[in-house]
């Protein structure tokens, strides 16, 4: 950052022709800093919810469960029947009946380790994985109903879809927030630049009359506002990244809220905010400057 300030201090003739503006200059930087700070969070939100949506889809996709309820004596034949049907169903990659021990383990968190599972009329679970093409869930359901009435097909996608949709919506909202922040930054810098241009109208008029070209005059303003926005955004981004880094660490159980943050190469993403802020400021000021200059002969 010191390099940027040194760059600003450099004796560029175009810098000196616009009078120093003191307090309002700091307002522009402050605005850019605040916007960059918010942008970091919006970005973190987008990334986290995007990750969440992907994780849920991946974990639940292409798996399904079939629950077989039957009197104990018929259980084995029923299960074998279901497995036979699954074997003939196109799109099913593998199917496997869970052993009693495995089922016991699944129930442990709820009933404790001492559950006399053998004494209970437990349904058997069949875990199946589909191939990439998937299978016809409706057809399978009908076939099972017809030949094994005690089998209930449980398609995970039924309850995973709204969750994934919610996570995806959250990611979209984050991206919309980033776009809004960029737009608001552009609007605020345009306002600030217009105020500066209006305040310096006599200077601009004088420069025009002594033969300065539009690009020269515009450059003086554009440079100033671009550097201010860049400096502000650097500070805001650094603060935002610091705040995200200091959030409590994510863990499996915490799910989504504590998962807000960047991981690995994701930390590089917020670093694009300062240059983007500078580009937004550059375009906003340039447009404002040329619009003002057009009004002068």
């Amino acid at each position: 950052m010191s390099r940027i300030f040194a760059f600003r201090r450099s004796e560029n003739p175009a810098d000196r022709i616009v009078p120093p503006s003191g307090f309002t200059a700091r307002l522009t930087s402050f605005t850019a800093a605040a916007m960059a700070f918010l942008a970091v969070f919006a970005l973190a939100l987008s990334l986290a919810s995007g990750k969440l949506a992907a994780r849920w889809s991946e974990a639940l996709a292409q798996t399904a469960t079939i629950r077989v309820s039957a009197p104990a004596a018929q259980m084995e034949t029923q299960v074998a029947k279901v497995l036979e049907i699954l074997k003939q169903t196109p799109g099913v990659a593998s199917a496997r009946a869970l052993s009693l021990d495995e089922q016991k383990k699944l129930l442990e968190p709820w009933f404790g380790p001492d559950l006399p599972i053998d004494a209970l009329p437990m349904p058997r679970l069949i875990d199946l994985r589909e191939t990439a093409q998937g299978f016809d869930a409706e057809g399978l359901k009908n076939r099972l109903e017809a030949s094994v009435p005690g089998a209930v097909f449980d398609d995970h996608s039924a309850w995973r879809k709204p969750l994934v949709a919610a996570a995806q919506r959250l990611r979209t909202l984050g991206l919309v927030a980033i776009l809004l922040i960029a737009g608001a930054t552009a609007a605020m810098i345009t306002l600030a630049a217009n105020a500066a241009l209006a305040a310096n109208r006599p200077v601009i008029r004088t420069l025009r009359l002594i033969g300065a070209r539009d690009t020269f005059i515009a450059r003086a303003f554009v440079r100033r506002f671009t550097l201010r926005a860049l400096a502000g955004a650097l500070i805001g981004t650094a603060a935002g990244m610091g705040a995200v880094a200091l959030l409590p660490a994510a863990n499996e159980a915490g799910g989504f809220l504590t998962g807000l943050g960047f991981t690995g190469i994701g930390w590089l993403l917020p670093l694009t905010i300062p240059p983007l802020a500078a580009i937004v400021a550059f375009l906003a000021t340039r447009t404002a400057a040329f619009a003002t200059l057009k009004g002068l002969t």
Partner: peptide, 8 residues
């Protein structure tokens, strides 16, 4: 010197 400055 401004006319010189603004024309580089």
């Amino acid at each position: 010197a401004l006319p010189l400055t603004v024309t580089g």
